[in-house]
Design a protein around this nucleic acid. Structure first.
Lengths: 225, 225
DNA sequence: TCCTGCCTCAAACGCGCGTTTGAAATTCAT
DNA sequence: ATGAATTTCAAACGCGCGTTTGAGGCAGGA
């Protein structure tokens, strides 16, 4: 660890994590990263083989941060109340709005990957499932009955995972006119509460009787025009 | 219109609309656009003052396409059943999944603007409200009682607008492993139905008692886990 | 015919990007 | 201390980007 080479390695990963979390993979330039890390541009190629290798290391660190700092104990999830689990899940995802720590940077990184998937990310999660996804799947399973189709489960999963990211994505837009939302802790608490009620109702509503209005699934095609 | 200059002008706008709808503003290069339009690169600067001017024209066309081809008659909205309005709204937003027409390209353009807001877009909607937003606001108003706070209305609006885009964003990811969703018309119909039920329940659940687990209307009790 | 405004074109400009180069500096084992 | 391996460094390379240049084509009126 004290070997001088490890020093710049660590500084690069640290700087890259901050930059990629803020700007995404494409938006984060090696010039900015090396400047923040007080290192030479060539160091990235030397230590990581290139920008992609550095990003892979950053993603690994983010996955590790989830193991370490996650609000949700994966093992305790099955025994949890489903509304409580939903709230915990939302709180974890909305952390970047009020905190700046390792967990919030990890959430931001995964948020970017939701928007623009990277091959590097794709390969990484092919080996090991993303913690957020397994958690979300667990929550969905608490709401959907065993009779739900795989397709329904998949849609619900994708849907749930994206719910909090709507507000994480770029809250700077929302805090300026015409929206003017103030993202302080009180607001985020209200947001979590409101979202928890909405998402809970949405998921709970899934295995209720369908719309009485008509045969929704096989109804007339309106896409012809 | 038949003046030779109008010909390349129109070809440029046409090509630019397709390119920007597919790749967004930053991702769409003038070289690709001019190649598609069989025009010279300098023509963009000549006719529109630059890439931004061309994009402004594309956005104007998209707004016009909404006026022209929208599935939702803004005037008829207040008298519509709220679930029906929700379904129509979702159908309109999910059109890009199954059709490639002017409306679907407009939806895609606005989808990109949801992800990465452009100054050009920002200025445009400052003058005139976005049709999608007013429609969504109308639907939210159908669900939320007059007693709801402005903050709640705002959050619900932002939330609703983003719901369909989750699936529009990049359905190519979802149609490949490990998701493997087939985006044919039948599937999109089922998706609309499922989302309509979920979002309807979510919005309707908002002006119900808060996280009380008691009231019988809110859903099944959580005796299980 | 000549001129004048409109329009097109190939080429080049300046910039930021990720990466490579080759030598200097530093570290480490012998 | 010495030689080899490791690590840093400033500079440059090649590429794609949006834009500019300046010459040239092409009308229509005097």
């Amino acid at each position: 660890m004290s070997r001088p080479s490890e020093l710049t390695r660590h500084a690069l990963i640290e700087a890259a994590t901050a930059v990629f979390a803020e700007k995404g993979y494409e938006g984060g330039s090696v010039r900015l990263i090396t400047h923040k890390a007080k290192a030479n541009q060539a160091a990235i190629t030397y230590h990581f083989g290139g920008k992609d290798g550095l990003y892979r290391e950053v993603l690994r660190g983010a996955l590790h941060a989830f193991d370490e700092y996650s609000l949700i104990d994966e093992a305790a999830l099955p025994d949890m109340d489903r509304d409580e689990a939903l709230r915990l899940f939302l709180r974890q995802q909305l952390i970047p709005l009020v905190k700046r720590n390792q967990l919030s940077r990890a959430v931001r990184l995964f948020n970017w990957e939701m928007l623009k998937r990277t091959d590097i990310f794709q390969e990484l999660i092919a080996l090991e499932p993303l913690p957020i996804l397994t958690t979300a799947q667990g929550i969905v399973d608490k709401f959907l009955p065993g009779t739900a189709s795989p397709e329904e489960r998949t849609i619900a999963l994708i849907w749930l995972v994206n719910q909090a990211y709507i507000f994480v994505r770029d809250y700077e837009h929302l805090s300026k006119p015409p929206t003017n939302l103030a993202f302080d802790e009180d607001f985020v608490e209200r947001l979590i509460d409101m979202l928890a009620r909405m998402l809970g109702a949405a998921l709970a509503g899934l295995h209720r009787p369908r719309q009485q209005k008509g045969p929704a699934g096989t109804g007339p095609r309106l896409f012809t025009a």
